[in-house]
Amino acid sequence: MLIMKDISKIFQTGDIQTHALRDFNLTVNEGDFISVTGPSGSGKTTFLNIAGLLETYTHGEFLLDGEDVGKLNDNGRSRMRNEKIGFIFQGFNLIPDLNLFDNVDVPLRYRGFNAKQRKLRIEENLERVGLASRMKHLPSQLSGGQQQRVAIARALATSPRFLLADEPTGNLDSEMANGVMSLLEEINQQGTTIVMVTHDALLAERATRTIQVKDGRVSELEILAQQAIA
C-alpha cells in the first residue's frame, strides 16, 4: 500500500546540506497500525510529511497505492492527499472561524461532493466520534480531546485509505489521550490503515507495529522485522 525505497530528503540552507532522511525504506500494508517513534530531530516529521505528500523527497522511490508519487505534479499530489490520506495533527488544526460541520466539510468540498453527499458524510463521521450533537459549535467551545475527535472525523470524512497522525495525543492529558487512542484503534479495526508518529512509548506500544527512526533511517530492529515479514 505504501512503499518507500531508499528515500532521502536533503534540506539545503546556503552551502549547508542537512540530511533529514537517508535511504529510508518502509513498507506499510493494508490494515497496519504503525507507530513511528524516535528522538527529536530523528526525521519522524519529515517522514510523515513525505508519506503524506506534504513535502517532496530528494532521492528514492515512493509508491502509494501503486502510484509513483515522484511523477505527480502539485495538483496530482493535492488530489491524492484528498482522496487517499487523512491527516490528524498534534495541534488539531481546526479552522477556528468555522463550526464543526463546516470544519469537517472542508476536505469534502475539495473532493467535489455535492451538498447532500457532504451533509451525509459530515453527520456520519461526527456521529462516529460522538460529536453529532455539537455540529454548530465552534472549536473553541470544545475540549482538546473533543477537538481532536473533530479532526479525526474530518480526516475520515473523505474515506481515506490511510490515516497519518502526527503526535495525535501530544496536546492532550492522559485521559483524553487514551480516549483518542481507543478511537484510532477502533478505526483501525474497521479497516483503515494508520501511521502514527509519537513520542509516547506507551501509546506506541498500542500500535500493531512499531518502527523507530534514528538519524533519518529506520532503525536496525525494524529492518530485521521487515525482513522477517517479507
Binding site: 502539485d74 493535492s78 484528498n82 491527516f87
Partner: peptide
C-alpha cells in the same frame, strides 16, 4: 498561514 497549510494538506490545490 497554518490554516492555509492545513487546507492544502486536506487536498486544496493552489488554485483553490
Amino acid at each position: 498561514t497554518k490554516q492555509i497549510g492545513t487546507r492544502r494538506a486536506l487536498g486544496a490545490t493552489k488554485w483553490q
